[in-house]
Amino acid sequence: MIEIRNVKKTFRAGNGEFEALKGVSLSIEPGEIFGIIGLSGAGKSTLLRALNRLEEPDSGEVILGGTDVTTLGARDLRRLRRNVGMIFQQFNLLSSRTVFKNVAFPLEVGGWPKKDIAPRVMEMLELVGLSDKAQSFPSQLSGGQKQRVGIARALANKPSVLLSDEATSALDPKTTQSILSLLEDINRSMGITIVLVTHEMGVIRQICHRVAVLEAGRVVECGKVRDVFMKPVSSTARELLSHLPRRGYDVSQLPTERGKPVVLFSFNGDTAGQPVISRAIKKTGAEINILSGEIDNLPSSRVGSLTVQFAGTEREITEALSYIRSQNVVTEVIWNG
């Protein structure tokens, strides 16, 4: 359990001041993959780095494993950091060390007995699928492989929390997928809490359970990924969602016939499995013509969206719509002429 309470941070450079965090509060459940998303400059990396105090918050509390991180002295802070792994956008591997020695680094720091280090390192490399690269240097690896080494290093000391700072932002889409799957596997098999920062909604959609949207140093939205995707409240969330490959409908392609409204339905996990549409047709006599649709598999549930065109009398259409709404389907009328 991670509790962030009213964390503030202001950067001062010369005469200028920049309020990166204006009082952020969040709580993150043990074992979940929690996403923090925002546009650049929103303060998401600052917030993440406040968790292990790579960034010193000006005020507020960060409760991690029952202790307030912000009050720890240097020695206790170092001990706490051994329990919090971290991966970075630029991987940050030591170029002077082999892959093996990079993964061994936190174990050396953590005072592991020499004889225990080698087996643990090999176990970690096996986990990330790089056993054959143990004696390679980072310069000989691809970006995806480097991040795998980063993950192995972050997990070597058996932390209970993993912080991910834009870990896939420097990778191509295919490599991003494989790294995200690896993180998901690790989360499932080890039960480790993952807090990840990203500016890509695609990352949130693929592996996060819950998400907080940051805007100019404030949390403007926080909840289950499904809910934020279905009903984004903040403008930031809407903007970020709009960067995703277009879903549901393309306005310019819609048929616009008088008396035949076009409506977008969004289904969540509970309703996605129900034959809501066919029941509405049977119940009201309205015609419902499906224009386009798709179903997203989120880690916590399935989200579907469907663009349909109604036909029939006005009464039939109104009844059909209200029935569908009553089945917990979110409806949005896109066109009604």
């Binding site: 970075f88 591997l93 030591l94 680094f105 050396e108 720091v109």
Partner: peptide, 23 residues
């Protein structure tokens, strides 16, 4: 970033000097 990564593992500054900065 390398210094930061080392610090994030809980390394003492002296360890960072000898195991990160100098190598």
């Amino acid at each position: 970033g390398l210094v930061e990564a080392a610090a994030s593992t809980g390394a003492h500054p002296v360890v960072i000097i000898f195991k990160v900065l100098i190598p």
